[in-house]
Amino acid sequence: MSIVALSALDKRIINQLHGGFPLCPAPYRVAAEALGTDETTLLERLTALLAEGTLTRFGPLFNADHMGGANVLAAMAVPMARFDAVAAQVNAHAEIAHNYQRDHALNMWFVAAAATPEAVEACFCRIEAETDLAVARFPKEREFFVELKLSA
């Protein structure tokens, strides 16, 4: 994926619209003033940044813990000869939200999300039965507050 060159305005949008978006009837107009632009331009730039993939999303971000479901990180040590076949077996489960290859003996890391912890566990058990590989479960025991800003 290519790295983009951004205009000064686009950089301000990405760096300053991290959070704190106004909760008022015309929030883009208020936010645009703070960014030194106008509502129409801000809406055009957000639309373009989303379309080109520089932003993956613009809007409310909810805490998954409150969204009525369970999600658990897990990992497997997959023999390289079977890696793509096992990835296909894991990804075939609708519960799997993300799956990454990582450079470690535990080389496949995925998150399963479902309505209940029992449904997540059942998904892991099915993956173990289908692949004949152990799934190491890493449920979140505690989340530490973070406030990341990636500057553009």
């Binding site: 994926m1 949008i13 990405i14 619209l17 991290h18 959070g19 704190g20 978006f21 909760l23 957000l46 940044l49 993939g53 520089t54 932003l55 993956t56 999303r57 613009f58 809007g59 409310p60 971000l61 909810f62 805490n63 409150h66 990636l150 553009a152």
Partner: peptide, 10 residues
């Protein structure tokens, strides 16, 4: 429950 409203960069 709502962490923030804003831009999520790639």
């Amino acid at each position: 429950i709502l962490r923030r409203i804003g831009a999520v960069p790639n």
